[in-house]
Design a protein around this nucleic acid. Structure first.
Length: 507
RNA sequence: CGGAGCGUAGCGCAGUUGGUAGCGCGCCUGGUUUGGGACCAGGAGGUCGAGAGUUCGAAUCUCUCCGCUCCGACCA
């Protein structure tokens, strides 16, 4: 057996490694439908953990869930010019509503629709149309709605979780009486995402507004959280948009204010998707497979009974059941510990490696020797696969939540260190070119090469900057909000700039 | 959507100048084993991505289509 479970390794071929991790961890697979994936039970369980936490955070911030149609009349999309333009190229369109059996046994679409329906790429327009009916008075505001749904964007180059033609997400849509309230909401939800990413996904992110070129179609401002993957590329892990009154005007979302004057609402929208699963993989997984942060791990502790004889099996299983029951009374992250006994009739080594590849944080083996000593053998997914430590059972029960917390914070710290090690402050275009390399080939890169990382650079928000970065395949990811203002001059235009931006290659 | 590469068993692959398909792992059965991916023996599993063509005969040659991967364009 090789010394690692995933082949190729990250250093050998990063994109292929990613796919092999998805497969080895049994998260998802390709479907017969081009560009669409099947999310398998383990992958969906991770998504359910994410959903559960986020949904709680949305409720805590006053939002309610609702559900809007999958189909959007073409005319709705046409209402906001920039919006149509932004999505026009990637829309699936339904034109018929019936199938008829043809003479050759083939099914033929018939019943042409009078108005084609667009499968939602996002729901601003249809939700806006409903908001227009729901909002009459300033007393109806703010209107704070979230929807968990699937959306379709016809992608030309799909990648499991990161970019598929259909994906699952949540989209929050809110309407407010004032500009300030809407801006505040936009930033509040950006913070929710940031907190969730860092606390629950153990994934450090940088919050900030996007440059004009990267804005959501129809938005006044788009904010994102950007994370660094283990190949040094940036991944946009969540977005929050301040839509101004653009959609309110397009959809006629109006209200009568206290003074009797009719005004347009100020709206926001924000979302995260199953792409976060890809983000977790590329942040934490290693050459042995997935590594899951305990807070989102469907199983945090797996108990592996080891036995030969029937008597041993009975005693060991009894011990496991007792241990599982006691652990389930402990809590971590406001939740009972999630413990599973794996008593499948498989060879021990096979079982262990499955759990390694699936990213289970803690593995506990209990065999006759442990039983005799009142102890157990503990292995951690953030330690080498073969490392085990013995521990008295009672001690483990008391220590388990703390071990999970240490695991979680350890992952976060490691990810932070990686990001720091691949972040630089640069002062000139020459430095930028040197940092990213003229091209990936020139950088001496194989498929496992680190793609630079994050460059903190002063750049103006003008097209000339994007043009200058284009040959490097680098984009301005966002203008970080953290830290002090640090005025400087744009490395492209020489003009004054208030803060540094993050430059990176991206997914 | 453009360029390149690839589609052969669940996974990874071999298959020569065309002659009717194999290996490793996995899977099933029996046995020996068992505290970190066991060993022996036996077995199941493939319309060779799909369709058409050339040929006595196609995994192999030709064409078309579909899908996947990488690069690009595009992508809140």
């Amino acid at each position: 057996m090789p010394d690692h479970a995933i082949s190729p390794t990250r250093a050998e071929n990063y994109p292929e490694w990613y796919q092999q991790v998805v497969r080895a961890a049994d998260l998802a697979e390709q479907s017969p439908v081009r560009g669409c994936m099947v999310i398998k039970p383990h992958g969906y369980a991770v998504w359910e953990r994410m959903q559960g936490i986020l949904d709680g955070m949305f409720k805590e911030t006053g939002h309610q869930n609702a559900y809007f149609p999958l189909f959007i009349p073409l005319s709705y999309l046409e209402k906001e010019a920039q919006h149509v333009e932004g999505f026009a190229k990637e829309c699936a369109v339904v034109t018929h509503h019936r199938l008829e059996l043809g003479p050759d046994g083939k099914l033929i679409p018939t019943g042409k629709l009078e108005e084609p329906l667009v499968v939602r790429p996002t729901s601003e327009t249809i939700i806006g149309a409903m908001f227009a009916k729901w909002v009459q008075s300033w007393r109806d505001l703010p209107l704070l709605i979230n929807q968990w749904a699937n959306v379709v964007r016809w992608e030309m180059r799909p990648r499991l979780f990161l970019r598929t033609s259909e994906f699952l997400w949540q989209e929050g849509h809110t309407a407010h009486a004032t500009r300030d309230e809407a801006v505040e909401e936009t930033l509040r939800m950006l913070d929710v995402y940031s907190t969730f990413a860092q606390r629950d996904l153990a994934m450090p992110v940088i919050r900030g507004p996007k440059p004009a070129a990267e804005r959501f179609p129809g938005a006044v401002d788009t904010y994102s959280i950007e994370a660094m993957m283990q190949d040094g590329k940036a991944l946009q892990a969540g977005t929050s948009h301040f839509l101004g009154q653009n959609f309110a005007k397009a959809q006629e979302i109006k209200f009568s204010g206290p003074s009797g004057v009719e005004e347009f609402c100020w709206t926001t929208s924000w979302g995260v998707s199953t792409r976060l699963i890809g983000a977790v993989i590329m942040t934490h997984a290693d050459d042995d497979g997935l590594v899951l942060p305990p807070r989102i791990a469907p199983v945090q502790i797996v108990l592996l009974p080891i036995h030969k004889t029937a008597e041993e099996k009975e005693a060991v299983l009894a011990c496991c059941r007792t241990l599982a029951a006691e652990l389930a009374t402990a809590r971590y992250g406001d939740q009972p510990l999630r413990v599973k006994i794996d008593s499948r009739d498989l060879r021990g080594g096979d079982k262990v490696w499955q759990h390694i590849k699936q990213g289970v944080p803690l593995r506990v083996e209990i065999g006759p020797r442990d039983l005799a000593a009142g102890a157990l053998s503990l292995s951690r997914r953030d330690r080498p696969p073969r490392e085990r430590t013995s521990m008295p059972v009672a001690e483990f029960i008391a220590a388990a939540p703390g071990l999970l917390e240490a695991f979680q914070t350890g992952l976060y710290a490691k990810a932070c260190q990686f990001r720091e090690a691949h972040s630089v402050r640069l002062e000139s275009m020459a430095d930028v070119i040197a940092f990213f390399g003229q091209s990936e080939q020139e950088a001496g890169a194989g498929k496992g090469a680190i793609q630079g990382g994050f460059a903190h650079v002063h750049v103006a928000d003008v097209p000339a900057v994007a043009a200058a970065l284009e040959p490097l395949k680098v984009t301005v990811r966002c203008i970080p909000m953290e830290g002090e203002d640090e005025p400087g001059v744009c490395v492209v235009t020489g003009g004054p700039v208030a803060r540094r931006s993050i430059l990176a290659r991206s997914y």
